[in-house]
Design a protein around this nucleic acid. Structure first.
Lengths: 194, 194
DNA sequence: TCGCGCATGTAAGTTGTTACATGATTTA
DNA sequence: TAAATCATGTAACAACTTACATGCGCGA
């Protein structure tokens, strides 16, 4: 549902092709709404059918025509309507937390490797968000309301990443602790009774 | 995908019915993996077909039979295998952030009402998580490894909620700021030129 | 007596994923 | 010369949502 309106919102700023929209989703919208290019193209076709966007094909040599999408008046109306309706909170569904819930059954070495990869990812994301903050939102209170609101979306991403990393530290501490307990006094069943 | 393994993990702790599993998902697993009862029943049927769980029907008077699911050896194996494979991070998809991205187009009064409702929700969730923490995980470093890992999943929930609330404060501050700017010097087009 | 909790599902629809497809241009 | 970027899709499948269905017991 919301993909539709994320597309419309992006097209509100400026007319773009599906390709460009995909770039936008993978960068500026990365902490807001994820979508694959397949989904984007499909949804754009639907928006076109519904006349919420119009298309102008711009021919190119060596490449397929660039199809530029413009939001229509009907599109703006639909967007405004959606924006002023309450939306559901997204459900929490994190496979990593399922693993922690399973507890004992995971091999800690495998978990550690996964966590290391995730940490790199989170650090990279944080750096990326920080860079955007620094270049575009350096003096947030002097921005137009429009960009102040967008900045808040970015802030959500930054705060989220910081929390992720703080949580990872707790996890590492606990993991080390478990390790040292296990090696210093192994489970009774693995030993001769004393 | 992961629903399957969340179910198996829950059944690892103790055999349960679909109804009980639904309770577990709505409480202990609320910050881990959300699932509706329909989905749970469907997935349980599939797990049974795959022989990853076995079923014993316990008749009841006045109610449908309670179907108790037990994890099988094959189920444990499948779970262990999944746990030691890397899993994808869940994609970010938040309609609320789409709204902030749209920026200017939202009516701030509608947004404020939505935010107030969300805040109540988050406060309630935080309280709930805190209660669990207090009753089950009061001395975390004295728990078995199994429960120390589960506690980390809960911590993720608590830290997440704290972040949500801190972000909301930023949002409220910015919103007030925008309001006071707009009312003290309205947009030029709404006024006579000076 | 009205609604909630208990207890199990079916069915239709939407949304999102994964795999496949094509082909020129630029960069390492 | 191999891989990445530009540029647009189709098709099959899996996952999730929403609406519907049934029926007893219990408490306000």
């Amino acid at each position: 549902m919301a993909l539709k309106f994320a597309l419309l919102a992006a097209l509100c700023e400026e007319p773009m092709s599906g390709y460009d929209l995909n770039q936008t989703f993978r960068t500026r919208l990365a902490n807001v709404w994820n979508a694959s290019h397949q989904q984007i193209y499909k949804e754009l076709a639907r928006l076109h059918e519904l006349a919420l966007v119009s298309v102008t094909d711009r021919p190119q040599q060596g490449k397929p025509d660039k199809r530029i999408y413009h939001i229509s008046d009907a599109g703006k109306e639909a967007l405004a309507e959606w924006l002023n309706q309450r939306q559901h909170r997204p459900p929490v569904r994190d496979p990593l937390l399922v693993k922690f819930f399973a507890g004992d059954l995971l091999e800690l070495s495998a978990l550690r490797e996964e966590l290391a990869a995730i940490k790199e990812d989170w650090l990279a994301q944080t750096g990326y968000y920080r860079a955007i903050e620094h270049t575009y939102f350096r003096a947030p209170d002097q921005l137009t309301p429009h960009f102040r609101l967008q900045y808040l979306a970015l802030r959500r991403g930054i705060l989220g990443m910081e929390t992720n990393l703080r949580w990872l530290e707790e996890v590492e501490t606990t993991l080390n602790d478990i390790d040292s307990q296990v090696t210093s006094r192994p489970a009774a069943k693995d030993r001769e009774p004393s």
